[in-house]
């Protein structure tokens, strides 16, 4: 959270929470500018000649000169930054030589597949984590509580790509209940690509056979992400709701003779701000963090695009992806801060 938003929150103190929300949304612009700036700086620090790198395989002097001019690389640093900004605002992220398309087009085709994967996985992880945290809070010393805290700790240490491979071995090779880990849809089905996420495209086309095949393809990658990322969400939520159990309002509730269920709910409610924060952090991380799982299942999303870009030194594509990922996580953090007003009454005061 930015200091400006915090300050605004403290000063207004008015019943209307619109002011601070607007202030917080305003900082989004600054954050995005920050992301843009750091990408600009990193490219210039780590590449001797961005034009040569961006030219890719077409290393003719004319091509390099053209890019140098288009990016304004012959100008001073502030001039360069300005021309970089203006081309960004025109939606020009450059061309990816690995696919031959503008980077923006490539990303538009691939980001939805990744978004679908991580959104479904995170939603399932969130529900499981919240239910388990509530169960543990109801019986903090039970057997379940021990098992759950053990899982919460271990899951965070597991390499997701390794879990994915292990699941492929068990459920594809041994049990044969899921399709091979190759893409989002069996090539036997032809579905018109609208969003780039096969499950949604099949629904749009009204092709139910393709839809269920796409769901089957999605099962293991989602299960992998859920297995690994439920752990840390669960652990932090559990810690927060347990600490809620020791707070005065819970003791007061007990003294009043409230039912155990009600008390558990109050304690879990105390954990909601933590829960929302860790959900947001995980979501922001996953757009890029799912690259390994995407690679294991040849998912063909934005993450795999970034990996291919790194492997082929396709800097325009890489730069474009880092930008999109940065903007995405800035948006997620904004959503998290706004959700605070919903789940935490103290933030509204």
């Amino acid at each position: 959270m930015s200091a400006a938003a915090e300050g605004a929150r403290k000063r207004t103190g008015a019943p209307s929470w619109l002011g601070p929300v607007a202030a917080r949304a305003g900082t989004l612009v600054l954050q995005v500018l920050g992301v843009v700036t750091i990408v600009f700086v990193l490219v210039r620090v780590f590449l001797d000649n961005p034009a040569r790198a961006l030219a890719g395989q077409n290393q003719s002097p004319e091509a390099i000169a053209a890019i140098t001019e288009r990016l304004g690389l012959d100008g001073s640093l502030p001039q360069q930054f300005w021309s970089y900004l203006t081309s960004l605002f025109q939606g020009d992220l450059g061309d990816a030589f690995s696919t031959g398309n503008p980077v923006l087009t490539d990303l538009r085709e691939r980001v939805p597949a990744t978004l679908l994967l991580i959104t479904v996985a995170l939603a399932i992880a969130a529900v499981i984590a919240l239910l388990l945290a509530a169960a543990v809070t109801a019986r903090p010393r039970g057997l379940l509580a021990r098992g759950v805290s053990g899982y919460g700790f271990v899951a965070g240490a597991l390499p997701d790509f390794w879990i994915g491979l292990a699941l492929v071995f068990v459920f594809y090779f041994q049990l044969g209940v899921v399709p091979a880990p190759a893409g989002q849809l069996d090539p036997a089905y032809s579905v018109e690509i609208v969003t780039g996420a096969a499950v949604i495209d099949a629904l749009i086309a009204g092709n139910m056979a393709a839809f269920s095949d796409a769901l089957a393809h999605m099962a293991l990658p989602v299960a992998t992400l859920v297995l690994v990322y439920t752990g840390p969400i669960l652990r932090l939520t559990m810690t927060a709701s347990r600490s809620g159990l020791g707070m005065d309002f819970v003791r007061f509730g007990r003294a009043l003779g409230l039912r155990q269920r009600r008390i558990t709910w109050y304690a879990v409610r105390n954990a909601l701000p933590t829960f929302v924060t860790i959900l947001g952090t995980t979501y922001g991380f996953l757009l890029g963090g799912a690259v390994l799982v995407e690679t294991v299942f040849s998912w063909g999303g934005a993450g795999q695009y970034a990996v291919a870009a790194v492997q082929q030194s396709d800097f325009a594509a890489l730069q474009g992806f880092v930008l999109v990922a940065g903007i995405f996580s800035a948006l997620v953090y904004l959503a998290v801060d706004l959700l605070y007003y919903v789940v935490d009454p103290r933030a509204r005061a």
Binding site: V39, G284, G288, A306, A325, A330
Partner: peptide, 10 residues
């Protein structure tokens, strides 16, 4: 603000 894994990869 940048995702850790992607930043390292980049």
């Amino acid at each position: 603000a940048l995702p850790v894994f992607i930043l390292a990869l980049a």
